[in-house]
Design a protein around this nucleic acid. Structure first.
Lengths: 118, 118
DNA sequence: ATTTATGCAAATCATTTGCACATAG
DNA sequence: CTATGTGCAAATGATTTGCATAAAT
């Protein structure tokens, strides 16, 4: 099953199952195209491959610092956050991006197990 | 003058003025080292080269979507933001990253000028 | 026939790594 | 002498691009 925030490479692997002839470039091109058209959301992640998702409403993300996987944060998106900032140094803020970092449940379990062992 | 959030390449160019023999690898290695030691802060930016800065207290960033430059946001850092989220899906949140996007004053001026012309 | 999409390989960009050599302790 | 730092070039990983061909309208 495809992760909910797949990277272009993950999409490529998946598409390959049905269309083994496909090229990575085509996957990149079409993901960009769909994102431009607003049919997909493009999630740029610091330190790592881009992600794409089907969920189109603005929301925050959880990023596991161990495995790098991305999850949606179940927290209301604060549209007005940029207003709290106002225009600083002549900067006109139009949007904001929040990424929570930490450990996902899998990596926490793995860490717990590793701690057990010694 | 070095930008306040220089990329490794910008640091490299600068160091080259005094030490023309230096290698990019050395710059990368030492920036990483200093960041690990906590003498520099590493700012991972989505879509673009890493940045390093001297300011060590947590704070938010402004990222110009036109020129890609990074500025500090003059807005109080909300340490407790992850608490508003709590543990979702077993995810243990340890930190958060906020990047405001928009147009910096230079790019706004350039955009205004371009609009004038036609 | 004319546009549009694709495969492929090469190019680009940011970063890391292996390794041999230089330097410092 | 032994540990550490550095240059260089090659390797890696993500993404884009040029170009010739294939598919679609």
């Amino acid at each position: 099953m495809l992760a909910d925030h797949p990277t272009p490479s993950e999409v490529y692997e998946k598409v390959c199952e049905k269309h083994p002839h496909i090229s990575r470039a085509t996957v990149y091109r079409n993901l960009n195209l769909l994102a431009e058209r607003g049919e997909l959301a493009h999630v740029a992640v610091p330190n790592g491959a881009d992600r794409y998702e089907l969920r189109l409403d603005p929301h925050y993300h959880l990023c596991c610092s161990q495995c790098g996987r991305i999850f949606d944060a179940e927290m209301p998106f604060d549209e007005s956050m940029p207003e709290h900032l106002g225009d600083t140094q002549g900067f006109r803020v139009t949007g904001h991006l929040v990424i929570f970092t930490g450990l996902c449940s899998d990596c926490r379990a793995a860490a717990r197990e590793a701690a057990m062992r010694g």
